[in-house]
Amino acid sequence: MIASDLRSGVERLGDMIAAASIIVPFTGAGISTECGIPDFRSPGGLWTRNRPIPFDEFVSSPEARDEAWRRRFAMEPTFAAAKPGRGHRALASLYRAGKIPAIVTQNIDNLHQVSGFSADHVVELHGNTTYARCIGCGQAYDLAWVRKRFDESGAPDCTACDEPVKTATISFGQAMPDEAMRRATELAQHCDLFLAIGSSLVVWPAAGFPMLAKNCGAKLVIINNEPTEQDEFADLVIRHDIGETLGPFVGN
């Protein structure tokens, strides 16, 4: 069912939230656009300005590694200035109220943690851009260390095993994190309300979680400015601004 207007959509969503015992939100880039972080596919999005660098290219090409880090540091003022929006704060309110056991996100911006979610309860399918990891041994590095090395001699290698260091994100062609996928699957299978928020639902395998939840008996709500291929299966579709849609739930 597609909400005819924002007010009726919010009222129905409120009823569904009140009736639910276990809510699992699944968030995409759309929830962070009001925080100043551009999404990927929309006009002006990141991928309209820069071609994504696949993982195998990052591994094989020093030039690609330098370009990847140049882009990341160019975005640093944007990420550093971003604060949780109304959508983040609304979900954090439901988390504190005990309605949400954990959140599944495609986002890499760390804003759910900043909004009040315990890091242990944020399942990051695509990693986190606020720190770095060695792609060989997995050692973590803070971005200040990477920036110093990068300014001195280009993209750094790990001090422990000499493999390349990249942001702790999942690039195209890179294996999805097993533990995050396992936890997301389990959450989708055991909730009674699944909220897909700000995701185009076209990036797989992450896009499979809404239908997994639906097939396991959960109510499915999709909140996104643009239509998705899964709208026809949802119990409620709200095609309005995410901050305006979830704003009434901040502090509840």
Rank of each mutant, 00 (worst) to 15 (best):
I135A: 02
R147L: 12
V59H: 08
Q113M: 05
T130L: 10
S171E: 13
G136Q: 01
S93C: 06
A207P: 13
T159H: 07
L94P: 03
S42T: 12
E63Q: 13
I223L: 11
A97M: 09
F249L: 06
G116K: 10
A92C: 08
Q139A: 06
Q189S: 14
A188F: 13
S60M: 09
D192K: 07
I22G: 02
G217K: 12
N224H: 05
Q106F: 09
F233H: 15
E229I: 10
A80L: 09
Q113I: 11
E179I: 06
D178V: 15
A234W: 06
A206P: 11
Y131A: 01
A18R: 15
R183P: 01
I108E: 05
A160S: 13
I223N: 03
C216K: 13
D142A: 01
A80F: 00
Q106R: 00
G44P: 13
W47F: 11
F117E: 03
R149K: 14
E152V: 05
T245F: 02
A68C: 08
V122F: 04
P248H: 02
E226N: 14
V146F: 03
D56N: 14
I108Q: 10
R70V: 00
F40K: 06
K148Y: 01
F40R: 09
T167W: 00
L212E: 10
Q189F: 01
T169H: 03
R71V: 03
Q174H: 08
F55K: 13
D192R: 11
L91R: 05
A218S: 14
R65V: 09
T27W: 07
V59E: 11
E67V: 10
P54L: 10
I31K: 14
G127Y: 07
L220E: 02
R239Y: 10
S21D: 15
K83M: 04
I37S: 08
N50K: 14
H88I: 02
D109L: 00
W69E: 04
V122P: 10
A82H: 07
I22E: 13
S93N: 07
C35K: 04
R96Y: 09
I170D: 02
L212M: 15
T185F: 06
V123F: 02
P38Q: 11
N215V: 02
I22F: 14
D66W: 11
R51L: 15
G36D: 14
I31W: 12
R96Q: 13
V24I: 15
L13H: 05
L111R: 07
I23H: 10
I135N: 01
E124T: 07
